[in-house]
Amino acid sequence: MPTPAIDIRHVSKLFDSHRAVDDLSLIVPDGAIYGFIGPNGSGKTTTLRMILNIIAPDRGSIDVLGEPASAATRDAIGYLPEERGLYKKMQVRRLLRYYGRLKGRTVAELDPVISRWLERLQLSEWADKRVDQLSKGMAQKVQFVAAMVARPRLLILDEPFSGLDPVNAEALRAAVLDLRREGTTIVFSTHDMATAEKMCDRILMIFKGRKVLDGSLAEIQAEYGHDTIRVAVSGGLSALSGLAELESVIDHGNYQDVRVTGSPNALLQQLVLRAEVRHFEIMRPSLADIFVRIAGPSATIDGAA
């Protein structure tokens, strides 16, 4: 088995009495795009900080690119924090050089890489402008370049596409996919489930510090079964009231998404007796559905896992 890009073994982290990460184990294969999802405060950022060796775990161990997470492994990691992370008064090129030098690169090594990335993301003419003269989208792209300048083997992106217009989001998405093709491993956290579904080879969901999902989208969907049924019946929502084995109903107006404790066939039999069934579809749950099911208001760790 090839060396994984990240190997997290039974890692826990406590802040005072709050358990931010609880016995987390995870393997991120080399060259994969791995999505981290989870509600705010679930432990995603703490996990990312431990991978970056900004903070150390209280228990367990983390290997990055085959070595224990350390000052040396940091040089191989590029990091884009959510939204901010740039000196406002600094010129773009000077800032990118500075971040690259902190990764141990020389200006001579950095300049061609900086120029290439600025050109690719249509920022060349802004190279000598100050960061506070850039639009939010441009600043986000500069941050992305800052994460890339030292040619990292592992790229960690925290909400990389949030706040971007569709054109810029697409440009960054294409850049991320290109990097993956060149062999860079990419870990990104996101609240955008659609992006996670589209881009990630594998997905990790953390909830209350614990891993509650880990696998490919197909594996996760298979695990969560085909228990959501989309129906459109005459009478709408009222036609569904009082049905046996009904667990939950989400009303979308023209149709309803229904979950049952029994079989879909039994539901169909009941429905045809009381209304005209115009649509009946057994659906694969979306990542967003699974997310809400795990982290919704009534969720518990035991129920989620």
Binding site: L52, Y79, P81, R84, G85, L86, Y87, K103
Partner: peptide, 13 residues
Amino acid sequence: MSKISEVLLGSIT
């Protein structure tokens, strides 16, 4: 405030 320190600490101690 700008999370620059996170970026810096991702590169140096």
